[in-house]
Structure formats: structure tokens, C-alpha cells
Write a protein that binds this DNA or RNA. Structure first.
Length: 602
RNA sequence: GGGGCGGUAGCUCAGUCGGUCAGAGCAGAGGACUCAUAAUCCUUGGGUCGUGGGUUCGAGCCCCACCCGCCCUACCA
């Protein structure tokens, strides 16, 4: 048994999230975390909403509200979506809490004290009316190379040349059209070159483990070949104050959103421990070199998790070429695994909230079962390459695999049990065919477990469904529905007992993927209580009112997962009542394809 | 410009160290069965493995070039 940190990417709170987001980080991390708990590991699964940065400010301005108000609204929406999906966070918090501010500032101070944050003067654009940094991508102008009128500050979409915003002719703010002002400004830069060797050693070791997805490790190793210092502060009035004398008081200088966002994994772990009343407990996951950590995200976040965050940690630990000492949090663990998903497209095009080419998680869950979405994401998600979500494929997979394959097995088994015995009967002598199917199903714990433990979810759920198919075959071969004569009563009881055991075991195999329906199947076959613990929303009070963005209370996702069932066969209880079942999964009418496509057209 | 990923049966995709690797699921066709949300089970797949070279006794799998699609390039997973 190991300490396992499940570090899940922090959804950005500039709006509600779409199903591509939860396909990238949410569902895969939950399946993995639930499996690891079942396998006996001590899992700490944390995340939260990422609420700082320019995009939130821009969205807030557009909506006529403050950044805090916008973040509050979207945090609430996102929390609801994630709970509805059944994502089993130990703590899902936010980056505007006093605790987060405090932890981020300690990290920054530690990195600064060790000499890895260097002050530099840079030349950057600000908005004259607000005094805020204008990020390159928010500046438009005429391309000096090809004359394209709507070139972006970082790159011209027409000729593809990389640009510097100062190169643009007639530069203008994409936000309000005004002409940006280019000023000299002071910022702190993370000295990545001084950490390059340490990063090289770290990533080299990770590469040697052979467990990272090839594109992630290759991409990361490529990045560290050419490291430059990177700004960790911004001219912006929405973010975490720089915790140094002379800077703290400057309301227009804040920490770069990505400096603080990745620290969230640590701050959320600490918040979790504090709320537990055991404030040092987080150290089991962060200071023990034997503890494992798995970070889940979409591919556009790889650099922050495989390079920037390890660099921050190495700098805090004092492990770069400038040396140094760890601060009050001690020597912190670097990521064991960076598990990155690719992109999920929809109907062959990239999701685009602004263009309305999007399926929001909340909309999806208002019309379909959460486990139907979870099944689709696990079976056809963007695990190692981009994957296309289409409504016709969603309907097909739901109906032919979830409903016809698994749901039907549960239904036919429970129906025969209810009709013939009204309970789980005791088995008589087992025949070879019975022994074989029981062994086949039990072998699934090894094969499925091995795949899920290596984050091979597509292969894992396919293997579980293969086992389901074997059990369907068992019923076809043994033909219990033909055993109507009293002389066959004992054989009937035996077959149905075996079938019930197989269904219960399949349910356990599928439980990490389909926790909601696992509880329904459990109950349908006479199981008592809840099988898979589910998360809940709890409103909590701010722990550090002297810091943070001024929250008083806020919603978090949490849960007690200590009753998670173990990853093994759980014997059925003879005599457990089985009533005529109601179908677990809803079959979808093919017309939903057209309906949903029509929704997209709007 | 630089970097990455993908191009395998109608569709969605597996193919780890090069030698039963030419596969699975779905769709389609035929059959069996009726407990089950007409669900299940069995049988049925000859696709230049993007193109052209090369290395090798042997290459989807390695190398080179090219074509096509997608993505990243540091503030939208």
C-alpha cells in the first residue's frame, strides 16, 4: 500500500467547462483514483478552480462584474458539474482562498530566498486605461511582414511568422481597441537555466522508468534543451500579491497565474489536512520519498506540470545549481507521473465556446446519465491521441455496449433470480462450465487492474466489457431459462448463483469507471448500503480571513471514501433478496443525434 | 519558422522489444435462442498497414524524403 497523490488539473473559472475538459482530466483521474483506493492505496485526490489571470478579468469586464464575482459564479457551476459526474475529490477547492495565498507566498519566498527568482526589467505592453499588463495574444495589429491586418501580438495567423508585439504596425488592444502603451517594468523571473541540470536529472530518471506516455516525456525533454528565465509576476491587479517588501504593497503587481495554479496541488493538500483537524497529515504525500504522485491534465498543460512545477519544487527544495535549503514545508516530492490526455474534438472540429461549438458538462448531464458520459470518455476518450466525439457514436456506444452488453446482463440475471427464487439461491455442486466462468471473471481483477493502474483506461474498460461478454455467453450456453422442471431446480439455483456472482464481480470491475450505476447494480442484486462512495458539496468557512481574495464561505467537493470496496471478488450473500429489476441504463433513441446536432447549429 | 502527434477493414481504433502483425469493436450478411431495454450467443472481414526510397534473412513496427490532417509554440483542458 502506497500514499498516492492524485493531482487533477484545475479547471479555469472563466466559464462553465465542456465535456472535452472532463475527458482530459476529470474522468480519467477519477477512474484511476477510485481504482487505486480499491487496490488498497491511500489516495489523496485534490484540485480546485483556477481563478486568477487575465482571461478572468477580461471575461468579468465583459460581463460587467468583478473578477471575484465571475469566479464565484463559475466556481459554483463547475463544482456542481464535477459532483454530478461523481468525481471523488478528497478536496476540490479554489485558488482565491486565504490558505492558497499563504502557501503560494511561502513557496515564492522559499524560491526567492534560494536565489532562483531574479528581478529583471522588461519591456511590455500595458493598457493605458487600466494599467494592466496586456498579454501578447490580446494585442492585434498589422503584420509587418505580410501586411495582414489582424495579426496577433505573438504570431501572425496569415503568414505564420512569430512576432513581438512591438513589431506590429498600428497595435491595438483586442479587449477595448485602445492603443497599448509599451513601458519598462520590473518583474521576477524564475531562473530556469539554473535549474536545467536538476530538471534534466529528474526527467532523465522519469524517462528511464518507461512509464510516462511517450509524447509527454519526449515533449518535456525537448523543452528543457533551451530554457530561458520566465516571468513569474505580472502587471495586473487580480492575483496573489508578491510577498516581498516593496512589492507586497503594489496592487498592480501580482504573481503570474501559472505560478500559483500549480502550487494548488500542495495548498489543497494542506487545506484538506487542516480541515481534517490533522494539519501536518499532508506531509505523508509530499515529504515521504516513497509516496507516489500522478498529475492529470490536457496536453496543453504538459509544460507547466513537467517543467515549471518541478522547477518551482526543485528551487524550493534548494536542488538547483545555486543550492539553497528547503523552507518550512520541507523537501517536496516531484511528480511521479505526468498523465496527459490529448484533445477531444466534437463532430471533427475543436470545441469552441465562443463559436457555440460546444457541449457543456451541465447540459450533457441534464439530459443523459453521468455514467453514459463516463463510459464514452473511458472507452473512446483522447487518451493517447485526439479523439472525436460524435453524437452518433455516443448513441451507438451507449446502446450497444452499455445498455445491450452490460445493462442487459444485469437485467436478465436479476429477472431470472427474481422470478425463480426472489433471492440469491445457494449453489449446488459446480460443473466445469461454472468453475471456468468464475475463474475468467476473477482473472479480470488482474487484467483490468493492471491496465487501469497504468492509466490505460480505454484498454481497461474494453477488457472489463470483454469479461461481461463472457458472462453473457455463459447464460446462453447454460440456458437457465429452460430449466422449468422441478428436477432441474438445483442446477437452476447453481447457474443463477454463479451468474449472480459473476455480475457482482463484473460490477466491481466496472465500479471505478461507472460508480453511479455500480451502486444501482449492487442494490439490484441484494447488496446492502452504498457500494461506491460518492462525493458531496459542502459549504465551508474561510480558514484564513487575513489573506486571500476575501471569501467568507465557499463550496468545496469532498467525501468519505474509506468504505471503498476492495479490488477483489466479493462473495454474494445467499438469501439476499432480489426483486424484478428496473433497467439500470437508459437506451437512447436514435433521434437524439439529430436533436443534438440541431442544438449545435444554433 | 521551430516542435509534436496521427494517416491500418465502411466507421472508431489496437498493434509493447522488427519475425502467426495483418487484428478488435461497431456497422452489414446468415444462423441459434427467448431469461432480458428485439437485448443475447454463434458464423461471416482478404484492407497497396498515406506515398516513394533505404536498412535487414525479414518492417505498420527502424532510417530518409515527400503528401495529407491535427495540435503546441509558453494567459482558454
Amino acid at each position: 500500500m502506497s500514499k498516492v497523490l492524485s493531482a487533477v488539473a484545475w479547471p479555469y473559472a472563466n466559464g462553465p467547462r465542456h465535456i472535452g475538459h472532463v475527458a482530459g482530466f476529470g474522468v480519467p483521474s477519477d477512474v484511476f483514483s477510485r481504482y487505486m483506493r480499491m487496490a488498497g492505496h491511500d489516495v489523496l485526490m485534490v484540485s480546485g478552480t483556477d481563478e486568477h489571470g487575465t482571461p478572468i478579468l477580461v471575461a468579468a469586464d465583459a460581463a460587467g462584474v468583478t473578477a471575484r464575482e465571475l469566479a464565484d459564479t463559475n466556481n459554483a457551476l463547475i463544482v456542481q458539474d464535477l459532483v454530478d459526474l461523481g468525481l471523488s475529490y478528497d478536496l476540490f477547492t479554489r485558488t482565491t482562498t486565504g490558505n492558497h495565498y499563504r502557501v503560494v507566498q511561502e513557496l515564492f519566498r522559499g524560491v526567492h530566498a534560494n536565489g532562483y527568482l531574479v528581478e529583471q526589467t522588461t519591456y511590455g505592453a500595458i493598457s493605458p486605461s487600466t494599467g494592466r499588463t496586456l498579454p501578447d495574444r490580446y494585442i492585434e495589429g498589422t503584420c509587418p511582414i505580410c501586411g495582414y491586418a489582424d495579426a496577433r501580438g505573438d504570431q501572425c495567423d496569415n503568414c505564420g511568422n512569430q512576432l513581438d508585439p512591438t513589431d506590429l504596425l498600428d497595435p491595438r488592444s483586442k479587449i477595448n481597441g485602445e492603443t497599448p502603451e509599451f513601458i519598462e517594468t520590473q518583474h521576477f523571473f524564475l531562473d530556469l537555466p539554473a535549474l536545467a541540470q536538476a530538471l534534466q536529472d529528474y526527467l532523465g530518471g522519469r524517462e528511464a522508468s518507461g512509464t510516462w506516455r511517450p509524447n509527454v516525456i519526449k515533449f518535456s525533454l525537448n523543452l528543457i534543451e533551451d530554457l530561458k528565465p520566465r516571468a513569474m509576476t505580472r502587471d495586473i491587479d487580480w492575483g496573489i500579491p508578491v510577498p516581498l517588501d516593496g512589492w507586497r504593497e503594489q496592487s498592480a503587481k501580482r504573481l503570474y497565474v501559472w505560478f500559483d495554479a500549480v502550487v494548488g496541488y500542495l495548498s489543497a493538500s494542506i487545506e484538506w489536512a487542516r480541515r481534517l483537524g490533522d494539519p501536518e497529515r499532508w506531509r505523508d504525500w509530499w515529504n515521504d520519498p516513497e509516496a507516489l504522485s500522478y498529475y492529470f491534465m490536457g496536453k496543453d498543460n504538459i509544460v507547466f506540470h513537467s517543467v515549471i512545477w518541478p522547477a518551482e519544487l526543485l528551487a524550493y527544495n534548494g536542488a538547483g545549481e545555486r543550492g539553497g535549503e528547503a523552507g518550512e514545508y520541507g523537501t517536496l516530492n516531484l511528480p511521479t507521473e505526468v498523465v496527459s490526455s490529448e484533445y477531444m474534438t466534437m463532430e471533427s472540429k475543436q470545441f469552441s465556446t465562443s463559436r457555440g461549438h460546444v457541449i457543456l458538462v451541465g447540459d450533457m448531464l441534464s439530459r443523459y446519465q453521468p455514467d453514459a458520459l463516463r463510459y464514452y470518455i473511458c472507452a473512446a476518450g483522447p487518451e493517447t491521441s485526439d479523439a472525436d466525439f460524435t453524437w452518433s457514436d455516443f448513441v451507438l456506444r451507449t446502446n450497444s455496449e452499455l445498455v445491450a452488453g452490460w445493462g442487459n446482463l444485469v437485467n436478465r440475471t436479476a429477472t431470472m433470480l427474481a422470478k425463480n427464487f426472489g433471492e440469491i439461491p445457494a449453489a449446488g455442486a459446480l460443473e466445469p462450465v461454472d468453475e471456468t466462468i468464475l475463474a475468467t471473471v476473477r482473472a479480470g481483477f488482474d487484467s483490468v487492474g493492471d491496465l487501469v493502474g497504468r492509466q490505460r483506461l480505454r484498454a481497461g474498460i474494453a477488457e472489463a466489457m470483454r469479461v461481461v461478454g463472457e458472462v453473457n455467453k455463459y447464460l446462453t450456453v447454460t440456458e437457465p431459462y429452460k430449466m422449468k422442471d422441478e428436477s432441474q431446480r438445483e442446477r437452476l439455483a447453481t447457474v443463477l448463483h454463479v451468474a449472480a456472482q459473476c455480475v457482482v464481480d463484473c460490477n466491481t470491475l466496472l465500479a471505478p469507471f461507472l460508480p453511479h450505476s455500480a451502486n444501482l447494480v449492487h442494490a439490484a442484486l441484494g447488496g446492502e448500503g452504498e457500494f461506491m462512495p460518492m462525493p458531496r458539496i459542502e459549504t465551508v468557512e474561510e480558514l484564513d480571513t487575513d489573506n486571500g481574495a476575501g471569501l467568507a464561505t465557499y463550496p468545496v467537493i469532498t467525501g468519505d471514501y474509506s468504505a471503498t470496496p476492495s479490488w477483489q471478488s466479493h462473495p454474494v450473500r445467499v438469501g439476499a433478496p432480489v426483486a424484478k429489476p428496473t433497467p439500470i441504463f437508459t437506451k437512447l433513441d436514435p433521434s437524439v443525434v439529430e436533436e443534438e446536432l440541431a442544438r449545435l447549429e444554433k
